[in-house]
Design a protein around this nucleic acid. Structure first.
Length: 109
DNA sequence: CGTCTGACGCACG
DNA sequence: GCGTGCGCCAGAC
């Protein structure tokens, strides 16, 4: 889509399309965008997404270990965990339980 | 304008 | 199996 030409835009789109009760990784998104190693930029994009009028389910985005690496940036430590648990995702020690089962690959959609 | 950091990932030792 | 270094792109100082 023309509106998805921007790297950040793509990150927003993919993250917003993450199904309920499902999680994805920065690397998966980055690789889906074709940048691969630029997983850090994905996180940076999500950071900027807070300024958007649309809510980005960034809490569904975790690192490749299934750890809530970005929980601290939610304005709170437990916010991200609370949101995930609210969706039925079990979070233990800031880590997603059954992460690989809940893992959602953007290329899969 | 130059440099460093940052919600990561992988290769190497 | 764990620690360290580099790369990636964009923004802040």
């Amino acid at each position: 889509m023309d509106e998805n030409n921007g790297f950040f835009e793509k990150v927003y789109e993919v993250t917003k399309e993450v199904p309920y009760g499902r999680v994805t990784t920065y690397g998966a998104i980055a690789k889906y965008l074709g940048t691969g190693g630029s997983a850090r930029v994905v996180g940076w994009a999500l950071n900027s997404s807070r300024g958007l009028s649309v809510f980005i389910p960034a809490h569904r985005v975790v690192n490749r270990n299934g750890i809530l690496s970005g929980k601290k940036h939610f304005g709170g430590s437990l916010i991200m965990k609370q949101l995930l648990e609210n969706e039925g995702i079990r979070v233990e020690d800031d880590k997603v339980v059954d992460f690989e089962e809940l893992f959602w690959d953007p290329r899969m959609e």
